[in-house]
Amino acid sequence: MALDAPLVAVLVSAFAMTAIVGVRYLLTSGLFAWITARVRPGHYKGLDRQIRSEIAWSLASAAIYGIPSGVVAWGWREHGWTRIYTDVHDQPLWWLPVSVLVYLLLHDTWFYWTHRWMHRPRVFRIAHAVHHASRPPTAWAAMSFHPTEALTGAVVIPALVLLVPIHVGALGIVLTIMTVMGITNHMGWEMFPRALVHSPLGRWLITASHHQRHHESYRCNYGLYFRHWDHLCGTDAGLSQAFSRP
């Protein structure tokens, strides 16, 4: 029995987005792994088996991220479901940068609280232990999630574009920041200057120095982009002392 055209279009969109997410992961994580090999030769020595596991879990996560994104992308193109707009004049120009910040703050809030929830012992064993099996994390670990954890992350951007207006270019910036920070926070070394990391601004931003402490101590430093929830909730344990920028 032949599938009807709309269903085929949805499936094609979901498959295409899955492929895009997977290829993006391989290219970006591969790039930062290559940079690590040049800047810190031997930094991932002996981690080949772990890296293979990280890549396998990450490619599975690509499908979990790609399917809802593909469905929403189809709904945007065919039915205008989302609040994504292409004409910069559809919203006030000041909203372009503000929308990026709003998306990051909302995503960060969702991540902080779901991340804390996944550190409850039973949930941790079921879902989050896969991510923490990376000891130490590498540039390949940014999407190394159990499907349950991947699902909590996969719904955020599709939900936001249904509710909060954003220009397609601003959305691209959000996705770029999400990808780059997800990878650089797991590289096992700090690529940003010490002057930034240890500055007053750095006290509110999450970089590898901050997230590494989470992988060392588990019950602290739960944020994704910003440290305000960790500060407010008393879960900020500061920076890891295990490494520094060369």
Score class of each variant (00 low, 15 high):
L3S: 07
L3D: 04
L3G: 05
D4E: 12
A5M: 10
P6A: 03
V8L: 09
V8S: 06
V8E: 01
A9S: 13
V12E: 07
S13T: 07
S13Q: 07
A14L: 01
F15K: 09
T18G: 07
A19S: 12
A19I: 15
A19T: 14
I20K: 10
V21N: 11
V23R: 07
L27H: 10
T28Q: 06
L31I: 13
F32D: 00
F32R: 03
W34L: 06
W34H: 10
A37I: 03
A37V: 08
R38D: 00
R38C: 01
R38K: 15
R40V: 00
G42M: 02
H43A: 11
Y44Q: 00
Y44D: 00
K45I: 04
D48A: 14
R52I: 04
R52Y: 00
S53Y: 08
S53N: 14
E54Q: 06
E54I: 00
A56M: 08
A60W: 13
S61E: 01
I64N: 04
I64G: 06
Y65N: 06
G66C: 05
G70D: 03
A73F: 08
R77N: 10
E78P: 09
E78Y: 06
H79M: 03
H79W: 04
T82M: 04
R83I: 13
T86M: 09
D87V: 06
D87I: 07
D90L: 14
W94I: 13
P97N: 10
S99M: 09
S99Y: 04
V100P: 12
L101E: 08
L105Q: 10
H107C: 08
D108I: 08
W110T: 14
W110K: 14
F111L: 02
W113Y: 15
W113A: 04
T114Q: 05
R116V: 15
W117S: 09
H119L: 00
R125W: 12
I126K: 09
A127W: 15
H128N: 11
H128S: 06
A129V: 14
H132V: 03
H132P: 06
R135N: 14
P136I: 00
P137N: 03
A139I: 01
A141E: 02
A142P: 06
M143K: 11
S144M: 02
S144Y: 13
H146D: 12
P147Q: 10
P147S: 08
A150K: 13
G153I: 02
A154D: 07
A154Q: 09
A154W: 07
V156R: 07
I157R: 09
V161D: 01
L162V: 10
P165A: 03
P165F: 01
L171V: 12
I173N: 06
T176A: 15
G182Q: 01
G182S: 03
I183W: 10
N185W: 00
G188T: 07
E190H: 11
E190V: 14
E190M: 09
P193L: 01
L196V: 15
H198C: 02
P200F: 06
L201E: 12
W204G: 01
I206Y: 15
H211A: 02
H211G: 00
Q212W: 04
H214L: 02
H214S: 02
S217V: 13
R219M: 11
C220W: 05
N221G: 05
L224M: 12
H231A: 07
H231Y: 15
H231S: 01
H231R: 12
L232G: 09
T235W: 01
A237M: 05
G238F: 03
S240M: 09
A242Q: 13
F243Y: 14
S244E: 11
S244G: 12
S244T: 15
